[in-house]
């Protein structure tokens, strides 16, 4: 793994691609510096031995579990109308959402 200090323009570009966010040239350095500061500060976690306590990380995300009986019964309900489905869509045609031509990801 590269050192966290190595947060550079390439990494910012990579993260931007993953997150679909384009950072304008004139803000890139400021953003890079901020991210680097945070990442360096938060690296303290990587230096701490949490394993000793034998904790289960999964339990941290969810404080409860679901049994089969708590799952939803498989009953279909009448869905909202097409108009409702498309109510907030920026562009529609033929009862569909419309987006620019898709290029393979």
């Amino acid at each position: 793994m590269p050192k966290p200090q190595a947060i550079d323009a390439n990494l910012i570009a990579h993260l931007g691609e993953l997150a679909r966010i384009r950072v304008p040239e004139d803000r890139q350095e400021e953003l890079r510096a901020k991210l680097q500061q945070l990442v360096v500060a938060f690296s303290t976690l990587a230096e701490t031995d949490f394993e000793a306590a034998g904790d289960d990380a999964n339990a941290a995300t969810s404080m409860r579990t679901m049994t089969a009986d708590e799952l939803r019964k498989d009953t279909a309900e009448t869905p909202p109308s097409v108009d409702q489905v498309l109510a907030n869509a920026p562009q529609t045609a033929a009862h569909c959402f419309v987006v620019a031509r898709v290029v393979e990801p």
Binding site: A76, P79, H95
Partner: peptide, 18 residues
Amino acid sequence: NSKLFSPAPVAALGDPNT
């Protein structure tokens, strides 16, 4: 009968977004 995470009906056919 319904989807994995919603109560919308599952059907092979149907007009778009119904």
